[in-house]
Amino acid sequence: MSPYEAAATEGFTGAPADWLASLVGPRDPEGQRGPTGTRDKPGLQGARGERGTPGVDGPVPSGNGHSAAEVTLTAADVGAIPTAAAGAPGGVAQLDDTGRAPATQLPSFTGTVASINNMTGAVQLTASDVGALATSTLGAFVMSQRCAEVRDFREEETARLTALYQPTAAPTPH
Rank of each mutant, 00 (worst) to 15 (best):
A169G: 13
A169Y: 02
P82G: 02
T98Y: 10
E156Q: 13
V150G: 06
P26Y: 07
K41V: 14
R100V: 14
G139E: 11
T162L: 05
P29Q: 03
Q32R: 15
G46W: 02
G55H: 00
G99N: 01
A84L: 03
Y4L: 02
F12C: 06
G37I: 06
E10A: 15
R146G: 12
P3S: 10
G65T: 10
A6E: 14
V113Y: 03
G43D: 15
Q145H: 04
A17T: 14
V130F: 01
L20S: 11
T98C: 08
R39L: 13
G49P: 05
G131S: 07
F12H: 02
A101T: 11
G63C: 14
T172Q: 13
P42A: 12
A101Q: 05
E149C: 07
T112N: 07
N118F: 00
A6H: 05
S22W: 02
A17Q: 09
D129M: 05
E5P: 03
V24K: 07
G87H: 08
V92D: 04
P167E: 12
A75P: 03
T13M: 10
V78C: 09
L164A: 15
P35Q: 08
D28T: 03
T72P: 01
G37Q: 03
N118L: 06
V130S: 05
T168I: 04
E157I: 12
S22P: 03
